[in-house]
Write a protein that binds this DNA or RNA. Structure first.
Lengths: 164, 164
DNA sequence: CCACGGTCTCTCGACGTCAAGACACTTGAA
DNA sequence: TTCAAGTGTCTTGACGTCGAGAGACCGTGG
């Protein structure tokens, strides 16, 4: 089965035979697949009246375990957005009563963001829905292939996640 | 080497041992890696005074081969953006004299977007830079591993690229 | 005890994207 | 020929993100 990247690579080989475009076979697929996933997630979350960005923040807090609170800075590294964006996100989630902002008792510059009961429910419900959808997408692959894929991707993400 | 997704999955297994979160091992890595790549591309293109979205459009036209022209609709499917976004992109690229808009001789609703000589140069220069950067990122993997990874990713992208 | 660089969060303005709809044109069937 | 449905592009308004910088606070070294 051919995909858009196969066509893209073939076109480059025709137009620029002097270049080695092999890296695109991997990384263009990563970028394009991520865009497809974004769209699929958006429609999946719509059932729960949730935007993808809301899911990202709520589930980061949910994963932290009781008492379900993290600093904005910790949320930054998990969600890969800038600080201005995170401030905005927390504002909107607080307005919807899904999270609340508390002063950090150990650092008066800091703030802690805590999940409300309502926010926790939303996180739990939408996670189940997301996993169902992702299982369907991965249905193409055998269990072993999924394992291989995860391992290869880890080798690429690890440098980004550990060095900076 | 551990990455952020390993930590994420471990946290879910602790907090929600009732759920099978294995799909995240693959798809969360895809999404996160794509964000890292976006950032890396942004800084790489800055040397050429080019934004990632400009690169996407210019190289789509470049790949088309002489006379380097495509309809906005064809550009949509290649870049995975909406039509309103593409109109806006073409406007800005035209203002920078990197592309020009021509009436489609075969369809009076239609428009053709053509690369200017300047636009073609930009595309060629920035592609070489991108490939260098991507090769560095993929340096972690052997040639054979890159091939496996590309093949597995193709299985996931093909349904998105062919069905809709 | 003070000073200073580092850290944390927030503010602000500019920008790019999206979704939905408007409009003009095309196509195929009656 | 005519008309209705389909197609291709553009317009509009709302929204989310980014980057740079400000302000408050921490902590180490002198």
């Amino acid at each position: 089965m051919e995909d858009e990247v196969d066509r893209l690579v073939a076109a480059w080989r025709r137009e620029r035979p002097d270049l080695d475009v092999e890296p695109l076979e991997v990384l263009s697929r990563v970028s394009r697949l991520a865009r497809h996933l974004d769209r699929a997630r958006r429609t999946a979350f719509a059932e729960h009246q949730l935007e993808p960005w809301e899911f990202d923040v709520l589930t980061s807090l949910r994963r932290a375990g009781p008492p379900y609170q993290l600093s904005p800075g910790q949320l930054l590294t998990q969600t890969l957005v800038t600080s201005g964006t995170m401030t905005n996100r927390i504002d909107r989630l607080a307005k919807r009563n899904l999270v609340e902002r508390l002063p950090d008792p150990n650092d008066r510059r800091g703030v802690l963001v805590r999940l409300t009961a309502e926010g926790r429910d939303k996180a739990d419900q939408s996670l189940a829905g997301l996993l169902d959808q992702e299982r369907a997408i991965l249905g193409e692959l055998s269990r072993q292939q999924r394992g291989e894929l995860a391992g290869l991707l880890r080798q690429l993400t690890a440098p980004f996640d550990n060095i900076p």
